[in-house]
């Protein structure tokens, strides 16, 4: 049951309208960072205050909510946010990607392709892709306005000069519809190709920085690279030790103090689904 002390989904109606206006503007200008009056939420900054506000503004009573943290449904952050909305909005929750109508995520895109009608909400710590290269906000806004994105390539150049290859492995900058350069939030670059042409609506909320941006369905998103150092969606060169999947993003888990380790899918729902279907990895029997 909804906790009657709160309005639906915790935020008051005026706040939700304000956020929805920002969301509509963000969808109209894909990749553009729309300022919004971010509210204090009952959680610390950095724990997903932006994502939670976007989720609150999007939820309707018929929604089925899934929350993931680094791909997992069962970590503290994911469990807390899921319970928060189960209590304040009374919406149904799920761990199955296919059943969810709204998915709030921290740092991953689910392995299972999303479909039309689904909404993916990202938690964003630092929305400005140029921030660590240009500290002045006035200047970065000007750079977005005038499409001066050469600096982004300076970062990639520096990567190659230092490491021989583009070493940026998460929060890998992308260009949206040939216009805005966007920080895709700290998702691994393995997930970058999934941003492009995705059937779902993708919304990005940065609470502390008070910015919202969005990718409408089927938006073209290109990862920046050099002609002679093309973008590659990298992952550990293993298969999942539990479900045997060879093409999913993996977490490395240390199992003992003698160098023992295993690789498991970071997307827990995907991994569990495969195991239910009978797939088994190297350690699948024991785990």
């Amino acid at each position: 049951m909804t906790d009657q002390a709160y309005t639906f989904a915790y935020l008051d109606e005026q706040t939700k309208r304000m956020i929805r206006r920002a969301l509509l503007k963000a969808l109209a200008v894909p990749g553009y960072q729309v300022p919004f009056a971010s509210r204090e939420m009952p959680m610390p900054y950095g724990w997903g205050t932006g994502g939670v506000q976007v989720t609150a503004a999007c939820l309707v009573p018929e929604d089925r909510l899934k929350v993931i943290d680094q791909g997992a449904d069962d970590t503290t952050n994911a469990v807390s946010i899921r319970r928060f909305f189960a209590r304040t909005a009374g919406v149904a929750t799920t761990e199955a990607t296919a059943e969810a109508t709204l998915i709030q995520t921290r740092h991953r895109i689910p392995e299972q392709p999303l479909r039309e009608g689904q909404i993916l909400v990202y938690q964003v710590p630092i929305p400005e892709p140029l921030r660590f290269l240009e500290p002045r906000e006035t200047e970065t806004r000007k750079m977005h306005e005038l499409e001066e994105y050469g600096l982004m390539h300076v970062k990639l150049y520096e990567d190659i000069a230092r490491h021989g290859t583009i070493a940026t492995s998460y929060a890998y900058p992308v260009k949206v519809e040939g216009r805005y350069v966007m920080d895709p939030s700290p998702i691994p670059k393995f997930d970058n190709p999934k941003l492009s042409g995705n059937a779902a609506i993708q919304l990005f909320g940065a609470g502390r920085e008070q910015r919202i941006y969005a990718l409408p369905p089927y938006t073209a998103v290109v990862s920046l690279d050099f002609d002679d150092h093309p973008f590659t969606a990298s992952k550990p060169g293993h298969a999942c030790d539990l479900c045997g999947a060879a093409h999913s993003y993996l977490d490395e888990v240390i199992t003992d103090d003698a160098g023992g380790r295993m690789f498991v899918c970071s997307d827990t729902d995907f991994c569990a689904g495969r195991r239910r279907e009978g797939h088994q990895g190297r350690l699948g029997g024991q785990a």
């Binding site: 290269l133 001066e148 050469g150 600096l151 390539h153 300076v154 970062k155 150049y157 520096e158 190659i160 000069a161 230092r162 690279d225 050099f226 002609d227 002679d228 150092h229």
Partner: peptide
């Protein structure tokens, strides 16, 4: 730009006007 290498400093203007080939830069 004190935070990046000499090569990146020289290359910045090239990249700003659209150079996208690391070897050439």
């Amino acid at each position: 730009r004190m935070g990046v290498s000499a090569g990146a400093n020289v290359g910045e203007r090239l990249m700003a006007i659209g150079a996208r080939h690391y070897g050439d830069i």
